Simulated assay, not measured.
Amino acid sequence: MQLLKLSNSIDIKKYLIDLSVDSGGIQILSSKAKTHIIYIKDLHVGGANILKQDALSIGADLAVPRGTVVAKTPFVDCMLIVTTKQLQTLSRKELAQPFGLKDVAKKLKDILMAKKPSNVQIMGVINANSNSFFSDSRFMGNRAVDTIEKMIEDGADIIDIGGVSSAPNSPLVDKDEELRRVKPILDAIKQNGLYEKVKFSIDSYEPLVVSYALESGFRIVNDITGLANDEICKLCASYDATAVIMHMQNSPQNMQENPKYEDIISEIYSFFQSKLEKADAFGIKDTLLDVGIGFGKTLEHNLVLVKHLEHYLTLQKPLLVGASRKSMIDKISSSLPQDRLGGTLALHLEAMKNGASILRVHDVKEHTQALSVQKALDNISIKG
């Protein structure tokens, strides 16, 4: 007899199939294998005591502050520790309970419906300007075509092209100048038939530039202002383009001047809800969500967002993460932009593990390799 301690990160369904477990058993057992940790804020103390007992009755648990049982305070924060199977039971059971537990039940159901992507796409970055923080991503005119073709060869699924730096304290650029910068690249892409090989995204919030890109064949609008301009919404709807809704506190010119949040995870969630409603009202069919790493956030804010990215999957939209070579890495391990590849890969692999569908990167080849290795690890079986 032999006993093996397996990793908690295995694809449990694959292992159960290898064991020749019947299909019904696979579904039941896999729902018992995953543990969810759910933080609940400001729950009525009566609801906390009911949820605690209901959780215990099915083998789950609710961590509550001391004094909850005697209602020391009217509202408490608590933490539910539960398997998928138990979560299914609680999401039904709490619908009949008072003290705000009906709302808790609905949110538990949202968590059950949230799914991590089975495939992660790589978005390569091309900057048509001279002041992007990472000099190796700067390309002007026809030179960009060679780089785009190399990115495609290296495994890029999307190429994101912008003419204005959005780094902290970057200068404002006139719309005509922005178009002048990107136009030669957009024209060259069309002339070389590159639309047939990869999807293209325009990194802009200027209607003049976005309109030209969409007319040229671009199908994604990467808007760092989060659809603040109604004209961008109209363009996305008119061209049936995918809109990337990114969160940014303030503007690139002042976003890093002491950014503050009461509750960054919840505030960005509310921001996304509002912007998704706006997108829907304008008739935008496809949206991506980007928490905006480095856009009005401290190091701690950025790390929290990457670590708890899975929370935003309940919005039922693909998540884009772009932490490539950003200065947050320097705050952890002193480095210049050209030396931040290792930190970038660590952040992006964590983001992928937590639900990212698209990684916006400067180093396509290295990310393709990292994702391939991660996929091999995820798919490995003890049977070989």
Results as ranks from 00 to 15, higher is better:
89 T>E: 11
90 L>G: 02
90 L>V: 05
90 L>N: 07
90 L>K: 02
90 L>S: 03
90 L>H: 07
90 L>I: 02
90 L>C: 07
91 S>G: 00
92 R>P: 01
92 R>K: 15
92 R>Y: 12
93 K>M: 12
93 K>I: 07
93 K>R: 15
93 K>Y: 01
94 E>G: 00
94 E>T: 04
95 L>D: 09
95 L>K: 15
96 A>I: 10
96 A>S: 14
97 Q>P: 04
97 Q>L: 04
97 Q>A: 06
97 Q>Y: 00
97 Q>F: 01
98 P>C: 11
99 F>G: 01
99 F>I: 02
99 F>R: 04
99 F>A: 09
101 L>H: 02
101 L>P: 01
101 L>R: 06
101 L>V: 03
102 K>C: 07
102 K>V: 12
102 K>L: 08
102 K>W: 00
103 D>E: 14
103 D>H: 09
103 D>L: 12
105 A>M: 01
105 A>W: 04
105 A>H: 00
105 A>T: 03
105 A>Y: 04
105 A>S: 12
106 K>N: 11
106 K>R: 14
106 K>F: 11
106 K>M: 13
106 K>I: 14
107 K>T: 13
107 K>E: 15
107 K>N: 14
108 L>K: 02
108 L>F: 15
109 K>C: 01
109 K>Y: 10
109 K>A: 13
109 K>H: 07
110 D>K: 15
110 D>E: 15
110 D>W: 08
111 I>S: 10
111 I>F: 08
111 I>K: 12
111 I>P: 13
112 L>R: 11
112 L>A: 11
112 L>Y: 09
113 M>V: 03
114 A>E: 10
114 A>W: 02
114 A>L: 13
115 K>S: 11
115 K>D: 08
115 K>V: 08
115 K>H: 03
115 K>T: 05
115 K>G: 01
116 K>P: 01
116 K>C: 03
117 P>Q: 09
117 P>M: 05
117 P>S: 06
117 P>C: 10
118 S>V: 10
118 S>H: 03
119 N>K: 15
119 N>R: 13
119 N>H: 12
119 N>Q: 13
120 V>S: 05
120 V>C: 11
120 V>A: 02
120 V>H: 00
120 V>N: 08
121 Q>K: 14
121 Q>I: 10
122 I>F: 09
122 I>C: 08
122 I>P: 00
122 I>S: 09
123 M>W: 03
123 M>N: 04
123 M>F: 06
123 M>I: 06
123 M>Q: 10
124 G>Y: 07
124 G>H: 06
124 G>T: 05
124 G>R: 14
124 G>I: 12
125 V>D: 13
125 V>Y: 08
125 V>M: 11
125 V>W: 10
126 I>R: 04
126 I>W: 03
127 N>M: 07
128 A>C: 15
128 A>P: 01
